[in-house]
Structure formats: structure tokens, C-alpha cells
Design a protein around this nucleic acid. Structure first.
Lengths: 162, 162
DNA sequence: TATTGTTATACTCTATAACTATA
DNA sequence: TATAGTTATAGAGTATAACAATA
């Protein structure tokens, strides 16, 4: 997954693990859940040489072959300069290729065979981690959770774009 | 809230907003929701001169007056060196005080009057953002969501500690 | 020996600003 | 004028490693 910052919140004992009134807020719980989840993801991705951002970039390029860097950057919500460095990192390991794009300014990005293999490893990790989440849920709950998370994102995104 | 990294995922048009199979994974949706939510939080906290990590530190010290730096660092899941700098930042604006601790090695951290006022502003923001989340939910859903998020965190945290 | 705080240093990720070339 | 890519530089946040004082 592309990388913005997952603000950390307390977990590891020994500590009193008490944040007062803040500790019961839904937004706080959402963040705690995501930080713990992202830590698992990052640890597992680290073993195959990916970061969450780069893995998401790989997924985006794979789903949108021939996309340009600017478009990728918008999808990942990072600017062109940051996108540049990230594509460089993926190109360096041979996972992504820059080809000539629709005009002489733009690149067209493609996942290589190496990148495809890397993506498959990422996908396995993603599936395994998701199984860890859904294991604690009924299938109704999983479906509801997906809907609620989309709602939260939609509400927040609307706020962000105003 | 203390700060770990919220890995970013695509939001802003124009882009095809398609991450393929990854896009439907619960962990991915969880992260998208949290990134959007944390962006709102960080923006609002920025207006009162706080970061999410520092605000959470403030909440922890307030809930655990006299706690030491090491304990705080464990609660925030950052190491002692990072904790040092964060307490420095809070002390610099007069929100937190270091007093002598239970032995001559350790500090005891306290929220000052300035810090209390700052916390109240943080709390207002936290409440307002949470209202944005719960506005899209029934109260049953909100309660369920809280439980599910705690489950996810618990499962992931267990994984992290092995 | 272990713990607490501290300092110095370095790394990662992202941002800003300015430049080139195309459109 | 606006857009795509690029480069150089800087900032925030965290980590590692080493040190002093204390337990």
C-alpha cells in the first residue's frame, strides 16, 4: 500500500495503556486497529523487499497498465517528486518499466515479469492478513465492516476536499 | 495521537482509482478509512499546533500523571530517544512539565495549565471528528464497529508480539 | 547488570521549488 | 500557459548506538 503516516498509539506493555476519554473514541479505535494491522503488513512486506506504498503502487500500475506517473501519484496521494522516487525504487528492482507514453512528455508504466511475481507474493500476504481479520468476524460482520469503512472514508474524504 | 505511519492510498481524482483485487480487501479498506480520517485529524490539530502523536502523548500524561518517559514511550510505541524529543516539544510550548520522579534516574511528567487548555482543544476536535464518523452510522452500528476494531487490533497485536 | 534519561547521528518518506521539454 | 517528468534540497518523524547517572 502507498504510504502516508499511520500515527501510532500505545500497545506494548508494560504501560498503563490508558488515554482517558480519548481512548473510547471511534476514530482512536480505528487508528489503533489500522496501526496494528499496518505493522503486520509492513513486517511481512519487508520480507519480500516491499514497503506498503510500493506494493500499492505495484497494484495500481498492474490494474492500470500504461498509466503515467502523475496519475499514479494522484492515486497514491503523493506528489510528482515523491512518485518519481517511488517509481525509481520499483524500476531499480526491475518490477516496473517506463516506456514511452501517449505523448513525448509522459511515461507509460508497466509491471514486468519480475513485478508480476512480486505482486503475487504481495497478494498472498494481503490475503493472509485479511484472513486474520475476518477470522474474528462472521461474514455478515465482515460485509458490514466493509460498508462502514467505506462510509468513514467517504465522509472524511469529503471533509478533506473542502 | 502518537504517530506511526499511516500508509497512503489513492483518493483524489482524476485517476482511475483501481487497485485491482487488493482494492476489496478489508485491510485495505481499513487503511483507506484511517488515512482519510487521520488527514482530517492532523489538519485540525495543526490549527492548534499539535501533531497526532503529541496530542496522544498529552492525553496519556494527563490520564497518567507522574508517568515516566520510558512508560510514555512504551504507550506510544516509540523508543526512548523519540520520546525524548516529543516530550521536549510539549515542554517547549509549556504543555508538559518534567518533575523529579520516584528515583533519581526518572522524570515524572505532568500536564500544566497550558497543557490542560490545549488538551481541551484537542478533545473538542476529537469529539467533532467522531461525530462525523458516527453521523453515518446507527448507534448499533457504532457499537459493533467499536467491537470489531478492537478485535482487529487485538488479533494484529498478538501477531506483532510473537 | 539493568534501567532512565540523554545526545549525536542517520535513515525513510514526503514536500517545495525550480528547471526542461513538450503540449 | 499548462502539463509531465525530473532534480536538488529540506523537513518531520523515527531509529540505532553510545554515554552518564542511578538502581
Amino acid at each position: 500500500m502507498p504510504s502516508a503516516s499511520v500515527t501510532r498509539i500505545g500497545v506494548t506493555p508494560p504501560h498503563r495503556n490508558d488515554f482517558g476519554v480519548i481512548g473510547s473514541r471511534l476514530g482512536f479505535l480505528l487508528h489503533l486497529a489500522d496501526v496494528a494491522h499496518m505493522r503486520v503488513i509492513q513486517d511481512m512486506l519487508g520480507e519480500i523487499g516491499l514497503t506498503a506504498t510500493r506494493a500499492t503502487a505495484l497494484a495500481y500500475i498492474r490494474a492500470n497498465p500504461g498509466c503515467g506517473q502523475t496519475e499514479l501519484g494522484r492515486a497514491l496521494e503523493i506528489n510528482r517528486a515523491s512518485t518519481m522516487e517511488m517509481v525509481n525504487a520499483l524500476a531499480l528492482v526491475g518490477a516496473v518499466e517506463r516506456r514511452s507514453g501517449r505523448d513525448k512528455r509522459s511515461n507509460a508504466l508497466f509491471v514486468t515479469a519480475v513485478g508480476e511475481a512480486l505482486f503475487n507474493q504481495f497478494d498472498e500476504i494481503s490475503i493472509k492478513v485479511d484472513e486474520g481479520i475476518t477470522a474474528t468476524l462472521t461474514s455478515d460482520e465482515a460485509q458490514l465492516l466493509a460498508r462502514l469503512l467505506c462510509n468513514i472514508r467517504g465522509t472524511a474524504a469529503r471533509h478533506n476536499s473542502i
